[in-house]
Simulated assay, not measured.
Amino acid sequence: MRKIETELPDVFIVEPEVFGDTRGFFFESFNQKQWEKITGLNTCFVQDNHSRSVRGVLRGLHYQVKQTQAKLVRVVVGEVFDVAVDVRSKSSTFGKWVGVHLSAENKRQLWIPEGFAHGFLVLSDVAEFLYKTTDYYAPEYERTILWNDPELGILWPVYEEPRLSKKDQKGLLLREAETF
């Protein structure tokens, strides 16, 4: 397992060591001792989530203002473009974003710390997305930033309008949203 830095200091990619041959492959998707060694974080995950979406679905940009969640996300079927946006108003990287391609093929994971909004766009016919969270889902504290906020300028690999939930269609611009 190795840690790969991104443009945002607190967001990073975790790349597992994969053992494979003609029969298939094996890797540890999470190992607490290795996690602590490469990240310096003593993280406690309390909830695992699994979603399935079809091509063109965009989920996000979500975060919780209380019971804040850090997330370790990965794709086990298909491919997504995964985005983290810093919504910590006192941060030097407030409003900055990073986007990473996650796929069943590359087996990479993305660490999204507390204080970041998260979203992803499905690029394959189908994608199954797994994520571990450090606190429980609390819908009353969930907030949504509009996926195409022009001030964020996220470069989504979209060639047509994405498929959004009603909740995500009503997302707010970052300047209007409740932040940390």
Rank of each mutant, 00 (worst) to 15 (best):
R74W: 07
V73A: 07
L174V: 04
L102N: 11
I38P: 00
A70H: 03
D10M: 02
P9F: 08
L102D: 11
I13F: 00
A177R: 00
K167I: 11
S124T: 10
L130H: 05
L121E: 00
D48E: 09
T144N: 11
N49E: 07
Q47M: 02
W35H: 00
Q47V: 10
W156I: 13
Q64E: 11
W111Q: 10
S92Y: 09
R175L: 09
S51Y: 03
K96Q: 12
N49A: 10
S89H: 09
C44S: 15
E142S: 09
Y141F: 15
S165G: 06
S165D: 00
F27T: 10
E17V: 13
D82C: 11
Y141T: 15
V18T: 14
A177K: 08
A117Q: 10
R88E: 13
T93I: 11
E15I: 07
L130V: 15
N42H: 06
K3P: 12
E79C: 06
L155F: 06
E161H: 05
G78N: 08
L8I: 14
D135A: 14
T43I: 15
I4L: 14
E142R: 12
R74Y: 00
I154R: 01
V77W: 02
K90G: 13
L155H: 07
V158T: 15
E142N: 12
A84H: 10
K96I: 07
Q34N: 12
A127P: 09
V100Q: 13
V122T: 03
L146F: 14
V126P: 03
I145G: 06
L152P: 12
K96D: 08
K167N: 10
G24K: 09
L123C: 13
K107S: 01
D135Y: 05
E15G: 08
V75G: 08
V65D: 13
R2V: 05
R52I: 15
F180W: 14
V85R: 08
S51V: 13
F180M: 13
T134Q: 05
R74N: 02
V18M: 05
S165M: 07
K107L: 04
L8S: 07
V77Y: 04
L172Y: 01
V11A: 05
N49L: 02
V83P: 04
Q67I: 07
A117L: 02
W111G: 06
R55D: 00
E79A: 14
A117P: 03
R23M: 11
F129G: 06
P9H: 11
R163T: 15
Q69D: 06
H118D: 13
T144K: 03
V54L: 13
E15L: 00
R55M: 12
L164G: 10
L61A: 01
V80R: 07
E176Y: 07
K132Y: 06
G20E: 14
L172P: 09
V83N: 04
A104V: 03
L146W: 01
V122L: 04
E36T: 11
E142L: 12
E140Y: 01
L8N: 04
V98G: 05
R143L: 14
G95A: 11
V76G: 08
P16W: 02
L58E: 05
G171W: 02
F81S: 06
